[in-house]
Design a protein around this nucleic acid. Structure first.
Lengths: 268, 268
DNA sequence: TCTATGCAGATGTCAGGCATTTACACTACC
DNA sequence: GGTAGTGTAAATGCCTGACATCTGCATAGA
């Protein structure tokens, strides 16, 4: 070595052992809090960053919430503030978090791809988002029609039923959730993890675009479109499945003419 | 203020003025090197990070290349190493860069979404990537058939011609480029920036998956598929355009049966 | 020729400091 | 009573300087 000091790593009074996690429950991180002396340890920053990302993704740090301060996090994790800062900065640049000077750091998105998309093209016409969503869902629908497992099909129909029931109940929040769940079932039935991720990102961007969504009574055309989609997938008809996905979005557009970003839009 | 010191920002001997850029040509950064006292300045780290990202995206820092060291970057930009580190860390976490301890920092991807995808699901069956690509391209093809501008159509046919010529020439590299250019033209013709970004990401993932690509003579079916796609888009036939995009991928799959990731695959 | 060694340089981590901004409670004034 | 101004605590932003540790490479040795 080109330089030698009398004290251990981290200068005089090095921290004995990083311990404790950040979330509410102590000692149950992603894969343990922070391991410093593993046989082949990954950089500390990476571990810390991973931990934060897990907290965001798992919902322990919900979107919009203010997370603990840098000093506090550093203390809890037993690492220096610089390390925490680098980790947070990474997630900020990714778009997952957002640091506000003099205030604190807030959670901005759950999905990293969403973060990137939102950061670079915030307005992004709602029509573009809808078209992209339709395209990905159509692709998934085709794949699902070709190769969906029986289990996936069962889930699909269950979700469709739940969606119909939720619509009848009048509970808008429940209806919105059921609707999302149905569409996710379609995407998952494709069996393609890549498309699942891309869809999730686009869907989250859409959520962001139409935050002030007012759920209106859906048109019969829209309701039919949902059923047609499930039917086509179950029948294994690729072309029909793809077309149904597009018809679905078309029905939504017809019910809510688009005029620009953040226009009053309906649930799909 | 709760504490006051006799010296300026950054302790004794603060840097007089950040200057000079990082790239080969001095003084021509993204929008000037680093502006510290703007009327409403964004955080320095953000500016620096933006600058690095631009260098990656513009190709001044090509994929695979080792970028200058942190100390050097800090010196050139006139900021502290901590700031440079935070900026680099952000891009590392995103997947754009990759830091190797004791060695240096390397460029890993041009597209941030690609970086995220590669980081989380590195293996990702080649078939999944192909299907995702086909799905997005099909969606773009449908949109293009509906609303492509005359200019976009002209570009499309030009690229198809160029692709055919490149194939005849036998120059594999040129052929690969021409092929990519054609597909990009299809996607751009959709007029949807969101889909353009997603396609670029997936395409880059594919490049990574089939790095050792050996370009084989394309089957007649594949060549026809390319032409059919252009025809359908020009004719404004949505359904035909979508089907053509899928047929294109199907023809490639037929010519090169997939057995797993990194299987010898052909150019599409 | 092959192997061991040492050096230079890179990233990783830490500690501590001060600057700047913001939210919020408090006070004084109208 | 309501409003504008003020002050303070706490947060992020930025910097300095040091040391640890790893890696690539040139060099000296077997």
């Amino acid at each position: 070595m080109h330089s030698d000091g009398p004290h251990g790593p981290g200068g005089p009074g090095s921290p004995p052992h990083p311990a404790s996690s950040v979330g509410p429950e102590p000692g149950q991180g992603h894969r343990g809090p922070v391991v410093r002396s593993a046989v082949r340890h990954a950089p500390l920053v990476t571990q810390v960053s991973e931990q934060f990302r897990e907290l965001v993704r798992s919902g322990q740090w919900p979107v919009g919430q203010k997370i603990p301060g840098e000093h506090e996090l550093a203390g809890q994790l037993g690492v220096s503030r610089a390390t925490v800062r680098e980790a947070l900065r990474g997630l900020s640049i990714t778009g997952l978090l957002e640091a506000r000077i003099g205030d604190g750091t807030y959670v901005r998105a759950t999905n990293e791809i969403t973060g990137v998309l939102l950061r670079d093209e915030p307005p992004s016409l709602l029509e573009h988002v809808l078209d992209a969503r339709a395209g990905i869902e159509a692709a998934c629908a085709r794949l699902a029609a070709r190769q969906a497992t029986p289990t996936a099909l069962e889930v699909l129909w269950q979700r469709l039923d739940a969606r119909t029931r939720a619509h009848g109940s009048g509970d808008v929040a429940a209806y919105a959730r059921a609707d999302s769940a149905f569409h996710e079932a379609v995407v998952h039935a494709s069996g393609n993890p890549l498309l699942v991720r891309l869809y999730a990102a686009v869907a989250e961007v859409m959520e962001e675009s139409v935050r002030h969504t007012s759920v209106l009574p859906e048109a019969p055309r829209t309701r039919d479109a949902h059923r047609q989609l499930a039917v086509a997938i179950s029948a294994g008809d690729e072309d029909a499945a793809g077309k149904a996905a597009y018809e679905l979005i078309a029905s939504v557009k017809a019910a809510a003419p688009l005029a620009g970003p953040a226009t009053g839009a309906r649930r799909v």
